[in-house]
């Protein structure tokens, strides 16, 4: 297992990637990407059991589905730095003829991506289908998914949440990024969702809460607990409390950077707060 130091270094490097990617094309979603950086780094470097290379069917390994596709900068950076494709390709984010589309897609054949996402609310159903395929294949690996909290306002999620427990899909760990922000403001101001813990539990899920969702050690502990609760006849949900824009002080605790890129000056400040560790792409 990689050291905590290495994971922290990787996290900082991914943050730099995110800032540089969105700055270059003056578009993209840095806020949510930065908030989920520690989670994705932990997932791909420690938590998931993966095979070398990429095979769409993913038999004999854990799978991950990103439902909130707009955090593609974080996803692409982590995939590249996990060896799915050359890190230099991060240079092509959102450019014409790129495999790194604004939102992730299988359409351009980018290794590591198993479903298109961006139009919200669809990833949980897909992850559940893949989890049921694993059961049919007697493949005892897990399926992970990540969803925004605002994304849960899409009704399809609740169809899927109801289905998962009814069908005892207990080989899935669905994580909700609880950053409390969405495009138009805080989730509390846009459409208060009440207690997601109580809602998931009422729908028959096991819920694990990670209070410090931007702390690698807390994430590893929480996800380890979540893993231990799979296979018990119930789906598992992780409520991951994060700070949008984490690691770049002026992007934190606001929805303002949901879908806005930093200018040259802001980029310089952001990068100064995250000194190069493992090498820029």
């Amino acid at each position: 297992m990689p050291s905590t130091q290495h994971l922290n270094d990787l996290t900082i490097q991914v943050r730099r990637d995110i800032l540089r990617m969105v700055h270059k094309v003056n578009s993209g979603h840095p806020g949510g990407s930065l908030g989920c950086t520690e989670f994705l780094v932990a997932l791909y470097n420690v938590i998931m059991s993966k095979k070398a290379g990429f095979n769409m069917d993913g038999i004999g390994e854990d799978l991950f589905f990103l439902s909130n596709g707009h955090i593609s900068p974080a996803f692409y950076s982590v995939l590249a730095r996990s060896g799915y494709f050359p890190i230099e390709e991060l240079n092509t984010f959102r450019l014409i003829d790129s495999r790194l589309q604004g939102h992730p897609t299988t359409h351009e054949g980018l290794p590591g991506v198993r479903i298109a996402s961006g139009s919200l609310g669809q990833g949980m159903s897909v992850a559940l289908g893949a989890a049921q395929a694993k059961k049919l294949n007697k493949d005892y690996h897990l399926v992970y998914s990540l969803h925004g909290d605002g994304e849960l306002q899409e009704g399809q999620n609740w169809e899927a949440i109801m289905y998962a427990s009814a069908k005892k899909v207990d080989n899935i760990i669905a994580t909700v990024d609880l950053n409390g922000q969405q495009i138009d403001g805080s989730t509390e101001s846009v459409l208060p969702m009440g207690s997601l813990k109580q809602k998931f539990e009422a729908f028959g899920w096991i819920v694990v809460e990670i209070e410090e969702g931007n702390n690698i050690v807390s994430i590893l502990n929480g996800m380890s607990e979540a893993k231990s609760k799979t296979g018990q006849g119930k789906p598992v949900c992780v409520l991951l409390k994060t700070v949008m824009g984490n690691g770049v002080d002026f992007m934190m605790h606001t929805h303002a950077w949901h879908g806005k890129a930093p200018n040259d000056e802001q980029l310089a400040i952001g990068l100064a707060q995250n000194s190069e560790t493992l090498g820029d792409y």
Binding site: G58, F65, I115, V126, G129, A130, A133, D139, Q156, E159
Partner: peptide
């Protein structure tokens, strides 16, 4: 066979997911 209930959106997503694994 998967009885999905009256939830067609979920059914389409489940079907997409089931292909991953060769179904």
């Amino acid at each position: 066979f998967f009885q999905v209930g009256i939830a067609e959106a979920n059914m389409m997503g489940l079907a997409a997911g089931l292909t991953i694994g060769g179904k």
